[in-house]
Every structure is written in C-alpha cells, then in structure tokens.
Design a protein around this nucleic acid. Structure first.
Lengths: 335, 335
DNA sequence: TGTTAATATGATACCGGTTTCATAATATAC
DNA sequence: GTATATTATGAAACCGGTATCATATTAACA
C-alpha cells in the first residue's frame, strides 16, 4: 500500500540499512549515496512509519497526561503548559481525563503496563503506593504536578505558604475576623492544595494568636455558585467576618457576589483574597495568590523528559514560588 | 526485558499463534488450551505490547484531535465531548493545540502522513483543498466540527439560523436599534461561526425591513475585556442601540459590564443576547442561543469511528440544532 | 471400517523500521 | 608493494505482535 523503506532502497539502488542511516543522520554515509537516497525519498514522497520505528526502538515517543476535570480553568492552564512544552519536542501528548475515582485508578494502573507511553504526567492526583510501585517496576517515569508521593518526581507549589501569605496580608491590614471558603476537605480525590490551603489558614491564625472559629470555615463543592452560598452563610452570621480568604479565584468571585447581594461594598465593608490568579482575576482587580499554573506544566514536562532520557536515581522535586498580588479587593479594616 | 507472547507460549506449552488466538477471542481454541494459556498469562502478568499489535494490524487505535486555543471555554467544551466519547472506546486521544496559522498548517499536513492516527477530528478549523486532498490520498478519515469543507465529514451548527433566532427575539420585543458585538470578520483562522453570525444578524435586519448601520457593528478580539470596550463604544453613540446581540456569551458579559459602568440597567435600559450558552450563562440569567458544544464533540467522534470502520463513499454531514434560551437579560422595548 | 468434514494447533511469513555484523573498497603506514 | 586501519555498505536478525497455511487430531457419515 504505502511506501516503505524498501521501496526507497530499491529506487536508490542501496540497501535498507543505508536508507535508515540517512534517515537517522548517521555520519558513515558517503555524501554521494546520501544525495541519491534523499532524492529517492523526495521522489517517492516517503515518510517513515512511526509505528514501525517505535516497535524497533522501543520508544513510543508518546507522553500520557492524566488530568482531572480538564475543563476547569486551573487544570486547563496547567495542561496548556504541558501542551506547549511538548509541542516543541517530538513527543505526542495523549490525554486522559479523570472524572471519577474509578477512572483515576484505571489510568494510573493501565499506563505503566504495555509500554504504551514513554512517561506519564499526572496533574493534581496522587497515586497510591501500589500504583507508584507499578510505575517503578515497569520503569515508566512519572512526574506529579501539584500532587505528592515520596517516591515520585514532583512539581509542587507550597500552598501552605501561599495561604499564609494571603492571611498575613489580611492580618496586617488589621483584620481579625477572617473567614475561609474552600473545597470539601474530605474530597475523595484528595487534592493536596485543598488541605494545604486550609492548613495555611490555621497556621496563620495561630501565628497571630487568633482563635480558629469553626463556623468561619466553610467548605463545599467547587464552583462560583457554591461559593456564593458559602459567602452568604458567612456574611449573615451574627458576627460576620470582615475579610474572607477563598481557596480559589472562582470561589472568591462567588463570595464577592454574595457580598454584593447583601449590599456590602468591596473592599470597604469586606476584604477578599483569592487563589490562583486566573485570567479573570486581573481584570476583576482581585487580590490573590499567584501560582504558576502554566509554568508548572512546562516544568513537569522538562522534568519528565529528563527522567526519560537519563533515568537518574533520585526523584527530583521542583518547588515553584507563589506570590501575593495585591489589587483592589483588600483594604485596611475600618474602625 | 519485558514479557512477550513467546514467553507465554513457552510457559503454556503452545505455539504463539494459539496465544494470539486466546488474546483475540478466536473461537477455534479448545477450552482446555484456553485455560492453560490464560493461566500462563496470569502467572507472567503479561500484557500484549500495543505497538507491536499496531504495526501488525496497521491500526494505530489513535485519534488525532486538532483544536485551536483549547483553553477557551467553547473549545474546551467541544473537546470534552470528544474526550468523553473516545474514553468509551479503545482509541487514544492525541491532542494538537493550534495557536498560530503555522501550527494549523503543520498539523493538518503532518497528520495524514505516516499513518500516525486512524482518524482526525478537527475543531473549528477549515482545511484547505490541498490539505483535504492529502487526507483523501492517505485515506485517513477526517471529521470537521464547526468547520466546513465540501469534501469532508462535518458536524455543524447553523449559526446563521442561530443569529436569526436571537435577532427575531429582540425584534419581536420591539427593538429596532440593535447592535452587534463580534469577533473580527477577517480573522486569519476564518472560524465559520463568526461570519455566519454576522450574516444572520444582517439577514434578520433585512427581513424586518430594518436598515443596517455600520456603526452598530463592532468587531474586535475575542474576550470579555475587548467586548466591554466594544459595548462601551456602542452605548456611548449619540443614538445608542436599545439591544445588543453578542456573538458569544463571554462577549455578552463584557457588554453587560460596559452597561453597568454606564449606569444602564439590564434589561430595563438595554437588552442583551449572547451565544453558546456556556456554564456561566445560566447562572447569570443571560438570554442566549444554546448551541450543543459538548454534543458536537460526541457526534464528531461517532461520525469518525463510523468512517474509520466502514469507509463509506459519501461524506456525511450532521447538523445539530440551536435553541433560543430566554432568560432575564432581554425585555420589551420601553416607550 | 474407511472416508470425509470439522476442529485445533504450530510453523512461519509478515508489518516496517533499527541495529549488528561481516565484507568490500579505499586510505594510510611501513 | 604489502600489511593494516578506516570507511561505506548490504544481508539478515530483531522488535512483538497478527494472519496464513499446512497438518494432526477428532467427529460424522456412508
């Protein structure tokens, strides 16, 4: 059917090994022969069959990316970084979207088998010990982005620190009654960011000798609407908080909507800090913690490619910085 | 290194052909032999190498998906439909993100070669005649989603009709001065939706015997911020429109922001209709044209798989319906 | 019971590349 | 001018599956 290396060899009057050498830029081909082969390749409009190459070399030139809820802006942004970095290489990106725990387990168990991919990038999901074990046994490198496992390569952000930054900012503005709006702490996917942000919230309170009031802590589904309800709940307490730290910008926006509905002006009556610094945040002038979503994807790819090429002994860990972006949704506590 | 079919054959005391038969559920294997082979497979923890299988069968079990700006909500939603549909099959999804014309051409030219993928799904990008030709020559099926080419399988939405619905709604409410906020008509990517919506706008005006005022037509970059500026421009005209049809919900939101800034209440002072019915729209109670983004992805996959399996003669075209969703951003023209 | 049909199975060619290894041709050294 | 090192090249093995085809075994039938 299609043109193979043997057709080219025949046409150029050489052996297939020579054609292969030309294709792979081997130095030991005479200039004359090389030209003849290149001509035959051009004449026949030949391109090597990548599948055959993969079988023969044992490399799939493919990276598997496992990502949960890939329509959510945070994950999309990370995925975009991954995509961008991979597009500059010869690797293909195979996408696995996870929306259920069953899918998570399925992909994490399937991918190390069969040598389907040369490496796996996992976004925001932490594999079990058994799953990590399978990766090691099949010697398929894994890199976790915003997830953790002691034996894995990781690209992480210190969300405890990020939450601390947000809280310190509010505290330094004089706020003492600070609410927290976040995701369910017992989410079955166990996103590490969720727990870490809450931990940072509590740490910062403790460091400032402020008591933790459980009713200032709201947890719920992710999304603007759920956050609006949580914000409403906080703001209609007998003694409402004067500032709210939201675990994501999306949730911060929900909180601000709740405030608006209740006739509270931001930042005059209520200070709000978000997290992630998504696209909309700058536009909405939201004070937030910038986390390098896109860069985390890029860094993950770099780490993975390194692991694939050199298979070093020690798993590496890259920690990316967070940054407080002060905009217009926070202000000193009025007295 | 890893375990092959030959190891299994040896262990089970059979030939490799028999193991292959067991793997592929061939009926002509005695129950006893089958059990012995299955046992050997389990003992050795064997899984067949998919690359070898691909080379041998000539099927890659892989679908290439070309999508522009895959972080934009509309495209993500379509992609999600594609992903969902593919996850129920044995096909892998290889993602190609397009952000420049060069990338578009590169992917559209590369993918038909080499038999890298069994089929290609193209979202919102229309291939050139030459590119379609290459697909035909290499007999790699293509399906276009929300894009067009006379010789391709297509899943489309009639945006002319959609725009007409939006306009008829506004006109029936008594509006006569209706602005249009949309993307650049001469966008180099030539998204068909852009032109079609504008065409629908003009058609509806003509049908209602309303004149088209060029200064009521704003075009600009996609995105909320650009739309806000366009909205501002329209609303500060000497004789501003009483209603605005925006080519996307994101843009409609921008327009509404402009209105708010100018102290105009919606829908009392200004009616706004969007397009797409993205997630936020329901929440914001935006009157909009619902277009089945997710479903278009699913339909595209179904069409593609059919094309791969049966290679029918005639390219098929699936037309998905649009629907006007009347919510709370449109009202009768006050007099 | 002999013959034919049906069933089960293994040997082997094949998919289209890469890689090893032996060899022919040429260059260099003595 | 012969011996040796270097360079260029092709034949063939290999990657790990699938598929064909010939054959051995068993069942069905006259």
């Amino acid at each position: 059917m299609s043109i193979t290396i043997r057709d080219v060899a025949k046409r150029a009057g050489v052996g297939i090994a020579t054609v292969s050498r030309v294709l792979n830029d081997s130095p030991s081909v005479s200039e004359e022969t090389r030209q003849r082969v290149l001509e035959a390749i051009a004449d026949l409009n030949y391109t090597p069959n990548p599948i055959a190459r993969r079988l023969s070399t044992g490399k799939t030139l493919t990276i598997g990316v496992i990502v949960p809820f890939f329509t959510l802006p945070d994950f999309v942004k990370r995925l975009q970084g991954v995509q961008q970095a991979l597009s500059e290489t010869e690797y293909d990106l195979v996408l696995f979207n996870v929306e259920t725990l069953a899918q998570k387990d399925r992909y994490l168990s399937d991918l190390p088998r069969h040598a389907r991919v040369d490496g796996v990038l996992v976004i925001a999901l932490s594999p079990s010990n058994m799953q990590m074990d399978q990766f090691h046994q099949s010697s398929v490198p894994v890199v976790l982005i915003d997830a953790s496992h002691p034996l894995a390569y990781q690209v992480v952000v210190d969300h405890v620190h990020g939450a601390n930054l947000a809280m310190q900012h509010l505290i330094s503005l004089g706020h003492r009654r600070i609410g927290f709006v976040g995701d369910h702490l017992n989410d079955p996917f166990e996103f590490i960011g969720t727990k870490q942000r809450f931990q940072g919230y509590r740490e910062a309170l403790a460091d400032a000798n402020l008591e933790f009031y459980p009713h200032y802590h709201q947890q719920g589904d992710h999304g603007r609407e759920a956050a609006r309800k949580m914000g409403h709940a906080l703001l209609t307490l007998q003694e409402p908080p004067t500032a709210i730290f939201a675990a994501s910008d999306t949730q911060a926006i929900g909180v601000m909507e709740a405030a608006r509905e209740l006739g509270l002006r931001i930042p005059d009556h209520l200070s709000v800090v978000g997290y992630n610094d998504i696209r909309d945040s700058e536009y909405m002038e939201l004070t937030t913690i910038h986390q390098p979503l896109f860069d985390s994807g890029m860094a993950g790819v770099q780490l993975l490619l390194k692991a694939i090429e050199t298979t070093p002994a020690e798993p590496e860990k890259v920690i990316l910085p967070v940054e407080l972006k002060i905009r217009r949704t926070t202000a000193p506590l009025p007295h």
